[in-house]
Every structure is written in C-alpha cells, then in structure tokens.
C-alpha cells in the first residue's frame, strides 16, 4: 500500500503524515495521564524509548514478528508505567512531575549504558515494518477505544480525579488505583508509539527520547486541549507540521514552544479545543434539537 501511495503522494508528505499518526498515538497516551486524569507526566519519552528499544531488540535479535514485538514493547512500557504510577499513591502533583522527569532521565542514562541497545550510538538497521496502514489503523483503534473509555464509568472517574480527588473518593472512586491505571494505559500507548517509531526510522539512539521530546508531547496535549481527544489530535497535527514549516528558523523552534506554553496557560489554559469531548458533542447536538 505504501508503494502505491508513494506514487501519488510526495514521500516527504507521506513521511509527515506517518509521523503525525505516531504522534497522535503518543499524545493520546499522555492525554490520558495528564489531560484527563490530571497527573502531570513529563517523562512520556521514557515510555516511548522503552517501547522502541524493546520492540527493536525483539525483531532484530530474536526474530520476533513485528506485531508481537510491538505488543511486547508496549507491555514493557506499561509495566514501567505501573511502577511510575505507584508513587502517585503518595505524591502531590508537582512531586509527581519531578518523579516522571527523573524516571525518563534514569531510563535514558540506562540506555546510554545498555550494551544490547548499542549504548550511546544506538541501534540501526531496524527493519522498516511500520507502514501507513499500520499507523493509521492503530490510530483509528486507539481513538475509538479512547473515546469509548472516556465516556464510560471509568473515564468519568478519571476526569473526576483531575477535578477534585477528595470529592471523587467520596463518590466511591478508588483514586489511587485509577491513577495507576491511567499510567498503565497511557504508558502502553507511549510504548506502542515508540515501537512504531523505531520500526519506521531504521535508527534510534537515547538522545531521541530526551526531555525535549517529553515536552514536545506535553505541548501537543496542552495546546490541543487537556483531556480532549479532538484537541489532542489537533495538537499532535499542529505540532508535527509547524516545526516542518519553521525548519528555516530551527533555532527558534524550542523558544517558540516555551513561549507557547506560557501564553496558553495565561490566556487559554484549557487549550484550543478546551474540553471538547466527542461524546458530549454528540449528545449535546442530539438532545439540543428536542428542547
């Protein structure tokens, strides 16, 4: 399919569309943790690297089939998500943010010293298994399941935790358990995105998954709209395309990211699409007519 597509679409654009898809999956995972449940995670690149390295090593060194390797990478990331989620049982928001940064740093330093991962040089020659169809097929599944989840009992409880933990507890929500759950689900998607990335790029090294990458992902969620699926998608699309357009002024790109965060927080803390939720829109329009 990719061969067919590349006849009609410029490979450069095809590449960008693919990266957009991968970023949507990564950002949806982070949105679940930070946007929906309100647990600031600034180490999403850490989960991404776990998925990337695990799946790449599985396909390269053990001849594991790509889908299985992808799943394996996601599961390893989810497992770490569980352990990172655990401290949230005791920690207030800001401390948690530091722990997530610390975690991602530790992971990065680990891979810098990890023999099978090629240490600082990284891994190259990863089979290019990620296709247009895999990415966008998985995007569709992720969006669908995410939307379903967020309009379910558990999803509402996630939002409730973000809004007021004590009130959520008095509604019978086991907040500690659900916070860990959000971390597990979010990091699973992080690992999935990492695996797709590794098998598209041929090449990964620890620097790809640094603090800047985590912030870039956070920006997507914040720009689009915390807790909103359409918002997260919009954020991922904009922040994948924008840097390409700003390529000429690459130096200023990060500065722009930084300023963007401040300006957004001051003028539009809920992001571009605020808290628009697919489910709400549907119901609102449906019932609005009867009134």
């Amino acid at each position: 399919m990719d061969a067919v597509l590349s006849q009609y679409i410029d490979p450069y654009f095809l590449r960008i569309i693919l990266i957009i898809g991968i970023n949507i999956i990564l950002a949806l995972g982070l949105n679940l943790i930070t946007g929906v449940t309100g647990q600031l995670s600034m180490g999403h690149a850490g989960f991404m690297s776990l998925g990337a390295y695990t799946s790449a090593i599985l396909t390269m060194n053990y001849g594991v089939a790509f889908p299985t390797a992808l799943l394996g990478g996601s599961l390893v990331a989810a497992l770490f998500g569980f352990f990172i989620g655990l401290p949230t049982l005791r920690l207030q928001g800001d401390y948690l943010a530091m722990v997530t940064i610390g975690f991602a740093e530790i992971i990065r330093v680990f891979f810098l010293n990890f023999e099978p991962g090629g240490k600082a040089v990284g891994l190259s020659g990863i089979p290019q298994e990620t296709t247009f169809l895999t990415v966008w097929g998985l995007v569709a599944v992720a969006v669908f399941l995410n939307a379903r989840l967020l309009s379910s009992r558990t999803g509402r409880a996630f939002y409730a935790i973000r809004e007021d933990e004590i009130a959520a507890e008095s509604c019978g929500v086991n907040t500690t358990r659900l916070k860990v759950t959000a971390f597990v689900l979010g990091s699973f998607l992080g690992g999935l995105g990492g695996g797709l990335y590794a098998h598209y790029m041929f090449y990964i090294d620890p620097q790809v998954f640094n603090f800047t990458k985590s912030i870039e992902l956070l920006n997507m969620v914040v720009l689009g709209g915390m807790g909103s699926i359409p918002g997260t998608i919009l954020g991922a699309v904009l922040l994948t395309i924008l840097p390409e357009l700003l390529r000429v002024v690459a130096e200023y790109r990060l500065m722009f990211y930084g300023a963007l965060l401040v300006i957004l927080m001051i003028f539009r803390p809920n992001g571009l699409l605020g808290d628009v939720r697919i489910y709400d829109l549907k119901k609102r329009w449906g019932l609005g007519k009867n009134k």
Binding site: L149, S152, R153, T154, R156, A157, Y159, A160, A168, C171, G172, V173, T181, L185
Partner: peptide, 12 residues
C-alpha cells in the same frame, strides 16, 4: 453520573 461510581461495577 460520577456520583454513581460507587454503586456501579463495570470496569475499564
């Protein structure tokens, strides 16, 4: 609806 969390059971 969040208030109903404690009296419902369906999981993720």
């Amino acid at each position: 609806r969040v208030g109903r969390y404690g009296v419902t059971k369906n999981g993720i």
